[in-house]
Amino acid sequence: MTDLRLPGNQGISMRSPAGNALETAASPSRVSVPDFDAVYESQVDFVWRAVRRMGVRLADMDDVVQEVFVIVHRRLAEFEGRAQLKTWVFKILVHVVRHYWRAHQRRPGDRAAEDPAEIHALAADHEDGPAATLERVEALRVLDRLLAELDEDKREVFVLAEIEQMTAVQIAEIVEANVNTVASRLRAARQEFEKAMLRFRAHELRRQP
């Protein structure tokens, strides 16, 4: 299992009952509520990336990411600092994405890889030339196509481990399964991902003249 460097609560300003912004490390014993602004800024990139790789279409990204943070906002007072902030946020994320899958009643990512808006979205933020942008878009498109081969359980574990670099223990907490289950899902997901990649490459070879 890959070890990971997980950004925890360090750097997140917390509000003490007196209303002063405090670092958590400064007063671990005080009951404090994280500041939503800081939580949002520190987590939105992870959330966006994971939601997208879990197969939510680009057109639906706003709604799904919004939903995650509306719930985060609402439950912020319940965050007790015992869990890593990212783990806590991702537990909400997985809940919302599962609901999305159910509502859409299709395999995650069925059409995620075909989203034409992806190019514009990526091009908007990168200025290293159209060739590099296309290459990056193509790589993500291939990745999403391969991820779409995994079923939901394996895909979420795979994304959390391999892209978000979380540990089995953290993932177990997020997906509410035991660590052994997570480990075996991840093993299976890696094997399936490799097979999907082989199939994809073989298919590409056949298409070449």
Binding site: D45, R49, M61, A121, A124, L140, I163, Q165
Partner: peptide
């Protein structure tokens, strides 16, 4: 994918 999949500032 870890570095490519971030939202834009506008997002």
């Amino acid at each position: 994918a870890r570095s490519a999949g971030a939202p834009t500032r506008a997002d």
